[in-house]
C-alpha cells in the first residue's frame, strides 16, 4: 500500500514535466479555470472574513483537495484561518485515512476528526442498517453534532452543482436552520457575488466555493496545479467482489458477505466514500491525464456509483433537507 508522503512523489514522477501551466493571466479574459479559481478564492475570503467560526468539511476526496488548495491560495502567505473537519464513519478506505493524517499536517492545516462513537458502540454499520440509516447516523448526525460541538457558524463544503439534479439550485451560501436543516423554499436569493452572511444564534451556513466547478474542471485543475490526491483514484489491481451491480473493493476478509469470493481487477475509484458503499470502476488510468482522457469518454455520472443516491428518486433532496450535504 502506498503511504501518503509517497503520494506526493508519485504524482510528480508519473507526470514529469507534464503539467501544463494555465498562464497566470490571459491577455483578454481569464481562462475558465482561472476564472473559477478567482471566484472560489473570493468566496473563501468573504466567508472567512464574515463568519465568527468557520470550518472546512474535509472529505479527503478530490474536491476537498481542490478546495484545500484554493484555501491555501486565498490566505497566502498566511495560514488557513480555520480548521478542517473530517467526519469519520470508520468505514473509510485505509488509504484515505493515511492521506488525511499526513497531507493536511504537511501544509500546516489544523484537522479535527469526529466520529459518532455512540452509534458505533451501539453497533451501527452499513451491512445491517442499510445505507440510508447508516448514513443518517454515521454521517449526517455525526456532522451535525460536530458542527454544534465546535459552535461553527459556517462550514465550507466541496459540493458542486453539476453533481446531482437537486444541487443545481443550491446557493453558494446555503442557509441551515437551527436544526441544521435545509429548506429549499427558504433559501436567500443570491445576486452577483454578494453574499448575505447574517445569522441568528444556532443557525449556520454551508458555503460551497466549488459550486460552479464541473468534475472535468476539478481534474483539469488537479493536473494543472499538481495537487496530491489519494491513490485510490489511480487504477491498480485490487481485490474486489461484484455486489448488486457494483464493483466493491475488499480490504479485509471481514468485509466479505457470506458466499462472496474476491477476484483481482484493475480498477479505480471515481469518487471516494465508505468502503461498502463506494463502487470502483474498471480502468487503466493511473495518471491524472489518463483519468481526464477516460473521463471525457465517460457517459455515466460520477455519483452513479454511490448507493445512497439511488435509494429512491429524489433521495438526495430528502437527505439534504435533513442536513446531509
Amino acid at each position: 500500500m502506498t503511504n501518503a508522503s509517497e503520494v506526493l512523489v508519485r504524482q510528480s514522477e508519473l507526470e514529469p514535466g507534464r503539467a501544463i501551466k494555465m498562464g497566470t493571466f490571459a491577455p483578454r479574459r481569464l481562462n475558465h479555470l482561472r476564472a473559477l479559481e478567482s471566484e472560489s478564492i473570493h468566496i473563501l475570503r468573504e466567508a472567512a472574513a464574515e463568519f465568527a467560526r468557520p470550518v472546512m468539511l474535509y472529505s479527503i476526496g478530490k474536491d476537498s483537495s481542490v478546495m484545500l488548495r484554493l484555501a491555501q491560495k486565498a490566505f497566502f502567505p498566511g495560514r488557513i484561518p480555520f480548521p478542517l473537519l473530517h467526519v469519520d464513519t470508520s468505514y473509510k478506505f485505509p488509504e484515505m485515512i493515511e492521506f488525511r493524517d499526513s497531507y493536511p499536517r504537511q501544509i500546516g492545516a489544523e484537522l479535527i476528526v469526529h466520529k459518532n462513537q455512540e452509534a458505533l458502540d451501539a453497533g451501527a454499520n452499513p451491512y445491517s442498517l442499510g445505507t440510508q440509516k447508516c448514513c443518517g447516523l454515521l454521517k449526517t448526525k455525526s456532522l451535525l453534532d460536530a458542527l454544534a460541538e465546535g459552535a461553527f457558524d459556517a462550514a465550507f463544503g466541496g459540493a458542486r452543482r453539476d453533481e446531482e439534479k437537486s444541487r443545481a439550485k443550491e446557493r453558494i451560501y446555503s442557509f441551515r436552520d437551527s436544526l441544521g436543516q435545509w429548506n429549499p423554499k427558504n433559501q436567500r436569493p443570491e445576486l452577483w457575488n454578494i453574499f448575505n452572511s447574517r445569522l441568528d444564534r444556532g443557525e449556520s451556513i454551508r458555503v460551497f466555493p466549488l459550486s460552479n466547478w464541473t468534475e472535468l474542471d476539478v481534474w483539469l485543475y488537479i493536473h494543472a496545479e499538481q495537487i496530491p490526491i489519494v491513490p485510490l483514484y489511480f487504477a491498480r489491481e485490487r481485490d474486489v467482489v461484484f455486489r448488486n451491480g457494483s464493483i466493491v473493493v475488499i480490504d479485509s476478509p471481514a468485509q466479505l458477505l457470506p458466499g462472496e469470493k474476491t477476484q483481482r481487477l484493475k480498477c479505480r475509484m471515481r469518487s471516494l466514500g465508505c468502503v461498502p458503499c463506494t463502487g470502483a470502476i474498471r480502468s487503466d488510468a493511473d495518471t491524472v491525464p489518463q483519468i481526464i482522457a477516460e473521463m471525457v469518454s465517460f457517459r455515466r455520472s460520477e455519483r452513479e456509483n454511490r448507493a445512497i443516491d439511488h435509494d429512491e428518486e429524489g433521495s438526495m433532496e430528502l437527505k439534504k433537507r435533513e442536513g446531509y450535504f
Partner: peptide
Amino acid sequence: MISSAQNTAYEGFSAFLERNMNTDLL
C-alpha cells in the same frame, strides 16, 4: 461532459488538455 471524446484520438492528448485548460467561460 464534453463532446470531444472522439477528437482526442486525432488531435493528440496534450493538445486536447492544453485547449481545455484555456477555453474561456460564457
